[in-house]
Design a protein around this nucleic acid. Structure first.
Length: 105
DNA sequence: TAACAGTGCCGTCACTCAAT
DNA sequence: ATTGAGTGACGGCACTGTTA
């Protein structure tokens, strides 16, 4: 199953904001990228335009799927962490109840 | 062992959204 | 209005496990 050894103890401090599918804007040079091919929709012949568009979309799809997989993995890790926390809290509640019962008896 | 179902990855199309 | 990036949906292909 998933949730292998890597990303160990992802929830030590409960970083629940870790799983963000979008907003990787920081590293991606949105505006200035691809200066060599900028405006390819305008100039080149239709066949080349199409080839270039397909290539870009191919790469975009790959990246999109990669991010999505990463996101899902991250969510699975969160689930595992929260399940553990839940288990611990239930156990704690049980023992506290136990202590209380013994006191009132 | 052939036939089939399930799964994962890929390429493409169609669409949306933000930037220009 | 145009352009480019991102993404959901779809179909195809390859691989794997299961069953008769």
């Amino acid at each position: 199953m998933a949730v292998t050894g890597d990303e160990t103890e992802a929830g030590t401090s409960g970083d629940l904001t870790a799983c963000q599918l979008q907003n990787t804007s920081s590293s991606l040079p949105q505006g200035g990228a691809e200066t060599s091919t900028q405006g390819f929709m305008k100039s080149t012949d239709p066949l080349q335009k199409r080839e270039h568009r397909l290539m870009k979309n191919r790469e975009a799809a790959r990246e999109c799927r990669r991010k999505k997989k990463e996101y899902v993995k991250c969510l699975e890790n969160r689930v595992a962490v929260l399940e553990n926390q839940n288990k611990t809290l239930i156990e704690e509640l049980r023992s506290l109840k136990d202590i209380y019962r013994h006191k009132v008896e």
